[in-house]
Design a protein around this nucleic acid. Structure first.
Lengths: 306, 306
DNA sequence: TAAAAATACTCCATAGGTATTTTAT
DNA sequence: ATAAAATACCTATGGAGTATTTTTA
């Protein structure tokens, strides 16, 4: 049983004639006749009574007609559904983000995107980098935003923005007035850093290594805001990326002038994975709005140090 | 878009692999791959992400899967429906019958048939022969039961039973004791006959013609029972077929011995018109039960004349 | 290297076409 | 005589096969 046979059958039922049905279906009458006969053979029963010049549905044909139409209708529904969704920006988008980016970067981007495309429904998963990469591989996450570079050539990574690192000092610290300093200047200080596993921990430690600095870590946390509070309370100093700066804290921030004292944030998707219009629109939106996010961070920084 | 493409698509979605889907569908992997690609081309979008060794549905593929299944499901439903109805004895049967047969022949046949096949629903149409033939042509009647022969080679007619004609006489008539007589014996009698249009009117008149008898018709009706009542009241004589004999009437019946003083009842269907199992079962049943109907009429006759 | 999908080609089954016959009006 | 469906025969599209390459884990 083939779709064109069902179409021919419906055409004959509707026109009451093989010839007219053939014309209507843009095939020759013998071709159509053959296909109808083939259909009848397969079903093991006649669908039409050939009464000389006129053709009429048999009792069985009458019951088959709505069923054939149902098949063709479902087919059109399927085709139409695809055509519609293909150009539709909406549906689920799952974004994975590392904890040291999520709360700073995502809120403004998501809100402005959702205003533009309210049909898109986000799920945000905040995990450390290796977990995010696993989720990407499994298809549980569509797009990840994390610190580059990453290892794994099955991914497509694109840098989004590079931000400088800042030293965080209590406001009454002797270096608190400095707008910039070298990591070496912090040699004597007790350090507050992120917990192991968070990629910014590695970033900070790597920067210290390069400066031949082996920080004495007296406090660890999973989030920057805790570090800032502790620094504000005078427990020691810390290193944070630009976007983690909070103007309201009791802290002072100084740009770290060391080479490579920076981190790059980028988007990562699984290579070969097809992206919906919503995914693409989101990636584009993130790219277009990275400046404003960065500027927002800068503005905060300028206010806090001035 | 073709059905086998939808089947292949579902197979890949279910097995998560082109190779396994091909094996499962009993085609080669390249063939299946090509058909999936063709389907994707037609839809204008990818349905699967080919991620190296594994294959996964795209977001669009996820929405297309239930739609494809719906099409295939409808198809199976259509196929199953036909297979079921093909062997099912039931549904509508429309029987056409002439008024001079209907009330005598049909009741016992229909009741016994309905006991055997309660799923069959009858519609009985009682009309004169030319109307019945038109209705057969139009497909409004499936099977007709009427007096043969008929004109019109687009029909298939089959004789069912031939019945003798009987003279109907008032019980105090001088010929009332006769078990048989010739039409010539009725030369002097006033006649009561069916109205024009009823085929038995023609049968009776034709028999009279052959006997060189030109009856004086003083009463006409559309049904035999009226004629019998009038004859019983002594208005005159009549001619009826065997099955119209009523034992309870005030009449006496005499077998008419003239040559060809008989009528043949038969079934008629439109040639080429396909018949359902119910139609065929009904025709068979009518054929099998004609004897009992005829005997029933005979028994009545013997009681009334003895 | 092994396993899976894609590519390249070959083949043939069959849908579809043309010409004609059959059938019924 | 005409109109419609069936039949006969031919053509060619495209589905399916085999062999091979590419890709990735």
């Amino acid at each position: 049983m083939e779709l064109h046979q069902l179409r021919y059958f419906c055409a004959v039922a509707e026109t009451g004639s093989f010839s007219r049905a053939a014309e209507h279906s843009h095939v020759s009458q013998p071709s159509l006749s053959q296909q109808i006969m083939k259909l009848e053979d397969e079903l093991g029963a006649r669908l039409f009574d050939r009464l000389g010049r006129s053709v009429r549905l048999t009792e069985l044909g009458k019951t088959f007609l709505p069923r054939a139409r149902a098949v063709l209708h479902e087919l059109e529904a399927a085709r139409g559904d695809v055509a519609e969704r293909k150009d539709f920006i909406g549906g689920p988008v799952t974004v994975g983000v590392i904890p040291t980016v999520g709360p700073y970067f995502l809120p403004p981007v998501l809100t402005s995107f959702s205003r533009k495309f309210p049909q898109v429904h986000f799920t945000v998963i905040e995990e450390i980098t290796p977990v995010l990469l696993d989720r990407l591989r499994a298809g549980a996450i569509d797009v990840a935003i994390l610190a580059l570079p990453i290892r794994g050539h099955e991914f497509d990574a694109a840098p989004l923005l590079t931000e400088r690192l800042f030293a965080v000092l209590p406001k009454n610290h002797k270096l608190a007035k400095r707008k910039a300093l070298s990591l070496k200047d912090l040699r004597a200080e007790p350090f507050l850093l992120l917990r192991d596993g968070h990629c910014f921990r590695d970033t900070a430690v790597a920067a210290c290594d390069r400066a031949r600095l082996h920080p004495q870590v007296i406090f660890e946390s999973g989030q920057f805001s805790s570090l800032l509070s502790m620094v504000g309370a005078g427990m020691g100093v810390s290193i944070v990326p630009e976007m983690a700066i909070e103007k309201k804290s009791q802290c002072r921030y100084a740009h770290i002038t060391d080479e490579q004292a920076a981190r790059t944030i980028g988007t990562v998707v699984l290579r070969g994975r097809s992206l919906t219009r919503a995914h693409l629109a989101f990636l584009e939106h993130v790219r277009a709005n990275k400046k404003s996010v960065a500027n927002q961070a800068l503005r905060i920084q300028f206010k806090s140090v001035s």
